[in-house]
């Protein structure tokens, strides 16, 4: 079991152009693009989104991390695509399965990019701008901030328990779940102790001393943020248009993999060929 995948979705202090975009703009963009990606049901539009995403990943200096995260996700994506292509009972199951795979790749890319370029403080500031109470905004950003710390501690606990003979990856599913108990107790205890100490520390430094809290830094929209917000609204409007009108896509966008290339069919041909080979 490895929590290394989480490392690819952490905030990274860098000076990429995307780091300078207001978190509100990025949040709107991620919501709009997620809605569109989940709604779209054709390969070509998904590929277009993927192609648009690639320069953004490059701009956000996320390329290496994204590719590494894809390495972790590849088995899952392959499993999803193959199982769906073989088991789905719809027209063009292979097309649908590939769309699912593309959806996973696109969402992992956009969400990874979002988390890498939006700092916990930005999240907190954005929530405050949206009139959320400060304590709520602080709790959200702190929870997000502590993910890598807790992941690191969890790995230490796993190593410590393994070194004392705990076999996490052995046995059937039920046994593996039962093996997790010696991990969960120390992980939970550590997290509790950490949160308790943090609460003491912030209380000792005047937490909520006044209702008129001031901020060293606060968010201000720049011209490029307005462009991102307008673009996000445009994507969201397109999504709403497609949902409400259920308009069919032009034929060149609505491409499906021909039936002769259906994975199920290819699988059956291969199976028959292998059977004939050995009979």
């Amino acid at each position: 079991m490895s929590l290394k995948i989480l490392e690819y979705f952490n905030y990274l202090e860098q000076k990429s152009p995307l780091h300078f975009v207001d978190p509100r703009g990025k949040t709107l963009f991620i919501i709009a693009i997620t809605c569109l990606t989940i709604f779209l049901d054709h390969i070509i539009p998904m590929c277009i989104i993927l192609v648009i995403m690639l320069p953004l990943i490059f701009l956000g200096r996320f390329t290496k991390r994204w590719l590494k995260s894809l390495l972790f996700l590849t088995p899952v994506i392959l499993l999803v695509v193959i199982l769906n292509a073989l088991l789905l009972k719809v027209d063009y199951p292979t097309t649908k399965a590939i769309i699912l795979g593309l959806r996973l790749i696109i969402l992992s890319g956009f969400f990874g990019l979002f988390f890498q370029t939006v700092s916990p403080d930005d999240i907190s500031q954005a929530l405050i701008k949206f009139k959320f109470p400060y304590s709520f905004a602080w709790a959200i950003s702190t929870a997000y901030r502590f993910i890598p710390t807790l992941a690191k501690e969890t790995n230490i606990i796993i190593d410590a328990q393994k070194s004392r003979g705990l076999q996490i990856d052995r046995g059937n599913l039920f046994k593996r779940v039962r093996n997790m108990i010696p991990l969960l107790i120390p992980i939970f205890a550590t997290a509790m102790r950490r949160s308790w100490q943090l609460a003491e520390a912030i209380e000792s430094r005047g937490w909520n001393a006044t209702k008129n809290r001031t901020y060293l830094y606060s968010l201000r929209l720049k011209w490029w943020d307005i462009i991102v917000i307008l673009l996000s609204l445009g994507i969201f409007a397109l999504f709403l248009y497609l949902v409400i009108t259920n308009a069919p896509l032009p034929f060149w966008l609505a491409y499906n993999i021909p039936e002769r290339f259906e994975l199920k069919r290819l699988f059956l041909i291969a199976w028959t060929w292998i059977k004939n080979l050995f009979s």
Binding site: A201, G206, R213, T214
Partner: peptide
Amino acid sequence: ENQISNLTVEREIAFPLENFG
């Protein structure tokens, strides 16, 4: 590590001052 709650050293030092407005 358990008493730090901000993303930069500067913001960490400013935290109590912000709390007091």
